[in-house]
Design a binder for these strands. Structure first.
Lengths: 188, 188, 188, 188
DNA sequence: CATGAATGAGTGTTCATTCAT
DNA sequence: GATGAATGAACACTCATTCAT
């Protein structure tokens, strides 16, 4: 990918994290990226397109991070714990500023089949985890989306509040939270 | 509260739900509320203040709704279930347009001690639920905030996706989700 | 008509005459009119609307000027000569800067029935002249539009070139030109 | 003339006719001409120069067309009629797109002696016609410019309105208009 | 010679805010 | 108190022009 395009995306992510959705203008992005305002329009159709592309860019980054060090051979629980911690770490390493600040969800999303398939592909390993869990009888028989909301979403939510200083989460509390999430999706 | 001020807040909520954050201007709010543009500035310092106050306005509405039909005499589980469903219903009854559309989180939030205390007061009954649960040994020994993220947050998250059509949640699945959230916070 | 609106129209006309169609911006108009840029948009929907309204504004001014001192009792030739000279004078008195500089024709024109009827009404006296001339057998049996192109258009064209200094037209030459235009439309 | 320069001029004329003065940019011209944007600046100083040169380019095309099939041996009236019809035909054959659409007059014109001499040379045959007519006593003793405005200008004006659909001109009306123009410049 | 990415001043337009009435 | 006309800085976006390759 062109050097300039990357710089523009990174600048946008940074500014979005700093000032939020409503606080950034194309001129600010240009300045932060070290390019002229007009240059942005060589790489992105308009502001909407820039934000859409940033969404996809981050989504694929996130998908990669989440499934890092996860292999099909690992036992279910270990896989789950790894993913949960990957999400947690992402926030705490200031690795994905937008995620940290909860601005990512607000990014304008492209609708439609295409987008859905992209997300399915990106999060294939997550779905595989849930599918195996249900097949083996360990997990509750619920849609993957619901399982995800119950077990992984809290990781992001907690991390966000932790990093924003809303409240502190100790290592012990964190490990307990992982267990709680596991409890949420497993049969009892 | 002054009639005009209420009308302005309601107009803002309606427009925010209809057009999103980007799509509203002070003139639109004025028109919708049936007042002159300048009048808004009698009741709100500036646009930011209007949005902040709207945040608090909605927050207190939400707090009321969540604890509706919840009394201290009900058993823990029933109280929890009622709150969970109150959150769920709020979204599905188009009762809180901003919540439904996920615009509420984007509202600029005041930071700081003051805001924290307001939220504590509003959600006192929720905290009481968790405190009792922990005291009786039924709940895990985790901070209330963490318990909330594990058990109530998924209700809002699920409802949002359900109402936005991201995916469908049947009545059975919903009840199973409530059980799962209960599993997350209870001891095993 | 609002004072500000008039000032904006006059400023536009002046700038259009000075810099031509392509040389003016809304900010220039605002500055020349002594109003803020945003004020223009209280009176005109957009730049196009401003130009359209200027067109109509000038058209009605021109129609008034052309038929000044023309009464139905005057003999045909005197009426014709008066109109011809009214056009001529308009240019030479710097009375209608846009006409002088031939920028008027370039103004974006509204199309359609409505516009046509407006023009018919404005130039009713001109049409009446041609109709009477044809009825009495003095004029050639041609459409009023054609008679107009043959006899009055040259007045504007000549005046434009005279005032722009393309060439000089003496008083005698001007009177001869009026006779020539009369020859063009009368029977021989 | 360089192949590239010709292509640029033709592209400009085409785009100007299609989109009007406002609708063309140098990048569009470059694309239409099949050259890089920077290349235009090898052949033209700037946009103004391109437009000026296009003006002259078209002017010389027009001059050629007007005097087509006109020879010194033809009687005055036949020469006049031929020129009048040449102008008429140019518009109706979609031969000179800019003329047809009235965009030609808007082209920025160079002022001054030099420009005047160019036009004199281009329209030498037209001047010759008027000079002979005056010498033989057939034409009125008026400057060639005035005679031209009285007799040839109406052809262009009529053709423009005809082609733009402002009103329809039948073949009979057109012939009558030629006679009327002849009447305008001849002695009676 | 030719290219086309890059520039940045400029465009038309919006809108939070003010203030004379 | 309430109004709404007026403001002008800011916005997203364009485009004539340059210059390293």
């Amino acid at each position: 990918m062109s050097d300039k395009k990357t710089r523009i995306l990174q600048a946008t992510e940074k500014l979005l994290a700093m000032y939020g959705f409503h606080g950034i203008s194309m001129q600010m992005v240009a300045k932060e990226a070290g390019v002229a305002a007009g240059t942005i329009y060589r790489y992105f159709e308009d502001k909407d397109d820039l934000l859409h592309q940033l969404h996809d860019h981050i989504l694929s980054h996130v998908a990669n991070k989440i499934t890092q060090d996860v292999s099909d051979e690992m036992p279910l629980k270990k896989r789950f714990r790894t993913m949960w911690l990957n999400i947690w770490k992402m926030a705490n390493q200031e690795d994905a500023p937008l995620i940290n600040r909860g601005q990512f969800e607000n990014l304008p999303r492209r609708q439609g089949q295409e987008q859905y398939q992209l997300e399915q592909k990106l999060f294939a390993k997550v779905n595989q985890l849930f599918d195996e869990g249900k097949a083996s009888g360990q997990f509750k028989q619920l849609d993957n989306e619901i399982l995800s909301v119950l077990s992984l979403e809290p990781s992001a939510c907690l991390a966000r509040k932790h990093v924003n200083g809303v409240f502190n989460v100790s290592d012990d509390a964190r490990d307990a939270a992982i267990e709680a999430c596991w409890d949420a999706i497993t049969q009892h």
